[in-house]
Design a protein around this nucleic acid. Structure first.
Lengths: 212, 212
DNA sequence: TAAAAAATGAGTGGTAATACTTATGTATAG
DNA sequence: CTATACATAAGTATTACCACTCATTTTTTA
């Protein structure tokens, strides 16, 4: 018997989920909460296996809540049930330790049950639309910017790589047997070409272009 | 008519591909090469739409070859045909601008044709095994490092996020209604806790921990 | 081979970040 | 009720980085 808790601030969503999971063999919804505080309190007395968690809650959002929960109850399998299909959100949640990410918009009963069983058994559940989204994010990045992007020279690229390796200008100069001033010039030109305001921005853009 | 070139150092592979693509409507194999140099030379006189490229060539490997080709012929769609299913390879190749990655081990004629048509039409082709591999890679990262990780406070995390957004200390101070010196202190403590020597390193480590 | 692009490097000035230490109010947990 | 942790903030130096401009040499390409 998989013990489940539902947390969502919309009663309608909770009703829908209860309905979808009612009388399903092997699944038992033992609690529902409508905010983060209630959830954290409830977990103290009611142990669960799987948590269906909405990302947008009135008091705390999922990004804050998940680490707190997993820190105290590492064995709970968290299944995010969200309205937004944003790959950065999805990635963040999974990396924080959630076991799945469902979209409210297209999750029906069979999917929901499949997801619950999958995460309960130690797997990760992502529906195919979400998978596609992630892959797209991961792979596309580069070439579109590539056209717009002013071409970075070989030497500039080398310097970019060394900056990524956390070398400072002096260390880069020593490594490449060139003057500190030359490194500064290359670096300045990189900032211009990538239209970045500082090193952080430069590296972010570079990463988006697939460098690194 | 999609004009195709094949590059592989194994004649048997070339024969197999020729055979698979022979007499397929809309597809025309116009050249075959068995090393990188021959390919680069051939491209000068024989324009193509799609390149089937083996990663392991005797003279140059794919990682070197692809940027050279795409730099000179940005409109060629490169389809990697490799024996190794390594996600880092796959990612690297796609990010360098390749449009697809096929495994020699399980590519049959229909798959091959589908892939060629997909990339010719501007898409990216990855077979499902490869997709799964990539997703796995992408999502696993976090939790193992999570245990080791020194505890970063809520406020420090906030500041880390704002640094990632390319704000400087003054801007962060203004945003959080605190003093510049306080931001500097938090930032200093972050560098210590993450054991980083500069902002670049700090952000790299943070990313590895799944922050961002 | 001329023209363009890339790599090299310096001048000069300014701003931001890093490297510490010390300290205080405040919340929190034992 | 008292350690402990956290957020806050200042003092004092030093170093790194950013912002430009200009100039020379080398390499690439037309």
């Amino acid at each position: 018997m998989i013990k489940i808790a539902i947390t969502d601030d919309h009663p309608i969503v909770i009703d829908g989920l209860l309905n979808a999971l009612y009388d399903v063999s092997g699944i038992d919804v033992v609690a529902t909460y409508n905010n983060g505080a209630a959830l954290l309190k409830g977990l103290q007395e009611q142990p669960i296996d799987v948590l269906l968690l909405d990302l947008q809650l009135p008091d705390k959002n999922g990004a804050e809540l998940v680490p707190i929960i997993l820190n105290q109850y590492p064995d709970i399998h968290i299944l995010i049930l969200s309205g937004v299909e944003s790959s950065s959100y999805i990635k963040e949640m999974i990396q924080k330790g959630c076991k799945g990410y469902l979209l409210k918009s297209n999750t029906d009963q069979p999917k929901l049950i499949a997801a619950i069983q999958e995460v309960y058994n130690g797997g990760v559940y992502l529906e195919s639309a979400v998978k596609e989204q992630l892959l797209h994010e991961m792979l596309i990045t580069k070439r579109k910017l590539d056209k717009i992007n002013p071409k970075i020279t070989q030497r500039e690229l080398e310097i970019l790589h060394l900056i990524m390796e956390e070398l400072n200008n002096q260390e880069i100069a020593d490594r490449l047997f060139i003057s500190l001033r030359t490194v500064e010039t290359h670096r300045y030109n990189l900032l211009q070409k990538l239209n970045a305001k500082n090193t952080t921005g430069m590296l972010r853009i570079a990463r988006q272009m697939g460098i690194g």
